[in-house]
Amino acid sequence: MEVNPHDLIRIKGYSYLITDAQEPEWVKVALTQAPYVVVRRAPMEKGHIPIGIRGQQRHERFAAFLPQDAVTEVITPEQLVTQKQWQQSSRYYQLPVLRALDDIYEIFQFYGLVWGPVGSVGFELVSGIPTAKDTSDLDIVVRLPHFPSIETARQLVAELTRIPIRMDVQLEIPAGAVSLLEYSQGSQLILLKSVCGPKLISHPYR
């Protein structure tokens, strides 16, 4: 089964979770309300998928592993884009971040890039549970086979900056993820978040 960081998984049940530590109370509450977990950027362990559970509060995050047979469905961020899932949301007119996705859609469409919303917005679109707040940043991943040119990155940043919401765009290549903004600035070292942890790498096109 192929899963990538940020994919959401609908799980068969709370009891399937494999945890090192005793999970906090809110974990069961959260999963009863919405049985979705997010794939973490970490190595598989004994064939088990590294996942995270999000609670109502910002500090409520819990890491665990999931056996593959506990997976009911995998929803990728890019799937939400194909169907413009945000337009079906009952909160489309209430949350500026959801309407902003229409403009972002046009931009990425123009560059022919595969992308999707993650974080609280992605979670809300999949689970139907109001998770995004007025103050939420819009987290986006762009999936690429390799790093784009620095020129493309700069143009993307310039276009996205015109949209009046706070956005955090990560470029996901097979080796890991880098911030689009940091990448576009062309500094000598950039932070790559890889499956084996974060590391500083030399900018590939500098």
Binding site: S179, L181, E182, L191
Partner: peptide
């Protein structure tokens, strides 16, 4: 260095005349 974004941070490091390192952290996670 660094950027504004989930799971990341920005750091501004400036020389100081005092023989101290003074660090101020503003964090979104309490």
């Amino acid at each position: 260095v660094g950027v504004v974004g989930s799971g990341d941070l920005e750091i501004l490091m400036e020389p100081s005349a005092e023989a101290r390192t003074k660090v101020t952290v503003r964090t979104s996670v309490k």
